[in-house]
Design a protein around this nucleic acid. Structure first.
Length: 259
DNA sequence: ATGTCCTTACCTTAAGGA
């Protein structure tokens, strides 16, 4: 089972680049972030015609997540529990029925800038809610995948210019500590389990020639429960997508599970 | 280098978010 995460930065803007990548990469499951579309406007037929089931959790203008799957889905849940007043569409989860059933959670973690400030407070509160929900899900002892745009640079080697991020919400100590608390539950950073080398990024800003200078950061992650980590066969970043036609500022990151 | 892209709205241009 090949599972990918891809922040597409707008489904309308990516209506050619996303299908092109799907045809080339042939993932079984894709968690999308920043669809920037309400559910009713998502062009689901484009993906259904390619054999994908489509589950969306959108909102107007901003945020919005979705799951595309060539395998059957069960028990779709929308929204991160823990705050009924939170109206941001940043979480969707479903059980994918492969040889082994895998619970896949797609997330778009708040950016948090500027920090300090209310947006940073929201980011940290959201991460605390995610920690609590992940702890609950792990009690099932089933294979779990938490994938998406975490908006967290875990360590210095995950940025080309780590010194440029020291006061940024993506790299501040509280953000990194909250990310480590997820790992401390027993989750595995799939890419790092397979590749410890520096210089691997998933995002290059549209500004200031970041792509041309390879000034990137690694902020799109797939975290695996122990039962999922036992099934891990491979994890890669599809870097070349950033150099394609009308690209997102993020590229797909994927895992292959023996499931 | 305040250098880009995407979306929406008070829509031939600016603003908010990233």
């Amino acid at each position: 089972m090949k599972i990918a995460t891809f922040n597409i930065n707008g489904i309308k803007a990516r209506i050619e680049a996303l299908p092109a990548w799907l045809r080339q990469a042939e993932p079984d499951v894709v968690c999308l972030q920043e669809i920037k579309s309400v559910d009713g406007n998502f062009p689901r037929e484009v993906f259904e015609d390619m054999g994908y089931r489509v589950e969306t959790h959108g909102q107007k203008s901003f945020n919005g997540v979705a799951i595309l799957s060539r395998l059957p889905l069960e028990d779709v849940r929308r929204g991160l529990p823990g705050d009924e007043a939170d109206e941001h569409a940043r979480w969707i989860e479903a059980t994918v029925i492969g040889k082994t059933a895998v619970r896949v959670c797609g997330l778009y973690l708040p950016n948090g800038n500027p920090a300090p400030g209310p947006k940073y407070d929201y980011k940290l509160a959201w991460m605390a809610r995610m920690l609590a929900h992940a702890r609950t899900l792990m009690q099932s002892e089933e294979p779990l995948v938490f994938c998406g745009d975490y908006n967290v640079i875990p360590q210095a080697e995950d940025a080309a210019k780590p010194e440029a991020w020291v006061t940024d919400a993506l790299a501040l100590p509280e953000s990194r500590a909250a990310f480590r608390r997820l790992l401390a539950l027993g989750l595995t950073d799939a890419f790092r389990a397979r590749n410890q080398a520096p210089g691997h990024y998933s995002f290059w800003d549209f500004q200031a020639g970041a792509w041309e200078r390879n000034n990137g950061i690694r902020i799109d992650h797939l975290l695996l429960s122990p039962q999922a980590a036992d099934l891990l066969e491979d994890s890669q970043i599809d870097k070349a997508v950033r150099g394609g036609d009308k690209p997102s500022d993020h590229v797909p990151v994927w895992i292959r599970l023996a499931a």
